[in-house]
Design a protein around this nucleic acid. Structure first.
Lengths: 201, 201
DNA sequence: GCCTCGATTGGCCGACCGGTCAATTGAGTG
DNA sequence: CACTCAATTGACCGGTCGGCCAATCGAGGC
């Protein structure tokens, strides 16, 4: 059978630690996390964490790497199933990205913590992603689907940043007077964005 | 003369501590800051910090309050000198906000740290700001200067969030292929944004 | 010239942090 | 079965964290 009842399972232990660590780091950032509490919530001894990951810093790196790899592959899959560049693709990409972030709040916070730390590594990870997106925009521009007088990379950056900030700073602006729901904001953003990038007559 | 050479100046001490604390907190966030290092860089004893501010947490609150008050009054001043709602006001507001953030990188990071902490207090501070901005958008909509089918608050939120995220996550996307300078991005954003909120024919 | 009271100092404390280590356990190997 | 080696444990360490306190200092009021 596949389920092992063995008392020792280093692989499972590793992921148990990683899972607990991710939730702690996502919630509190690097320096506020205490290894003792982390060990407790992973039902593991502190020494075991050091055995598997070396140090708190290395554990943090491991957590980030795993999360960003998940993010990266998820985005890559999205991008590949996108299909032919037509008028609606950009709209659908924005919607997909927005909903992806909504469903993965952890990754948004992880990104935010690393931004504040000045860690640019995770930013370099999605160079390909952005490059591919920008390339698509460029093609759409040539086909007359999008206006030509804007930097393709900026188009991608604009919607990525907007989606990110919406979820990252939600606690900040959710009390603003007149603020709508996730979907209402997305709809208005898409209205403005799509009209803004459309070819001018 | 105005310059006092007295050995004791509690007011100056307070601001020396606040200044040093702000730069530390901006750089490292709350929990990574060590009071001992902070005291050293403020040229002050640790005890003196406790004497004036009570605890690390209260000092953090004081730093945030001072910074956000500065932010708030700065924005209020900007808003009041804005003048009559004409076609260019929105564009100029975006430019002004963008450049304000560029020239005050500390406040961006301070906002970001508090977002991640889940502190919604500073978000409530600018309810009036956003309310006033949204009201202006509403008037512009009625005058036919802006399209009517979008939530005014979302218009404000969109450009605020974009400017914020641009500076907050700069380390993340500055290596993206094809990314332009501050001004180049602002120009493209304004192009898209202004075309997007313009009345549709 | 005291006297008062806040400003300021240095020394100190208990808690707890991340990390180490020697010892034990258990699963695989031959 | 014995041997090996990684997994796992619990006790422990040095460092330093935020915070406290008694003593000293200095400016201003009477």
């Amino acid at each position: 059978m596949s389920e092992k009842t063995q008392t020792r399972d280093p692989e499972l232990t590793r992921t148990r630690i990683l899972d607990a660590a991710e939730s702690h780091f996502v919630e509190q950032g690097f320096s506020a996390v205490k290894l003792s509490a982390l060990a407790r919530s992973a039902d593991v001894t502190k020494s075991l964490i050091h055995h598997h990951f070396g140090s708190k810093e290395q554990l943090w790196e491991a957590v980030k790497n795993r999360a960003f790899e998940r993010y990266y592959t998820g985005q890559m899959a999205m991008l590949e199933e996108a299909g032919e560049p037509d008028a609606m693709l950009l709209r659908h990409s924005v919607e997909a990205y927005f909903h992806f972030l909504r469903d993965n709040p952890g990754v948004v916070r992880l990104f935010a913590w690393t931004h504040l730390e000045g860690d640019s590594h995770c930013g370099e990870l999605d160079n390909q992603l952005v490059g591919a997106g920008a390339e698509w925009v460029r093609q759409a521009q040539m086909r007359g689907l999008l206006r030509k007088d804007i930097n393709p990379t900026h188009v991608i950056a604009l919607f990525v940043m907007t989606c990110t900030q919406w979820f990252e700073a939600k606690c900040h602006h959710q009390h603003w007077p007149g603020m709508g729901s996730d979907e209402a904001f997305l709809e208005d953003f898409l209205t403005i964005f799509m009209a803004g990038v459309a070819p001018q007559n």
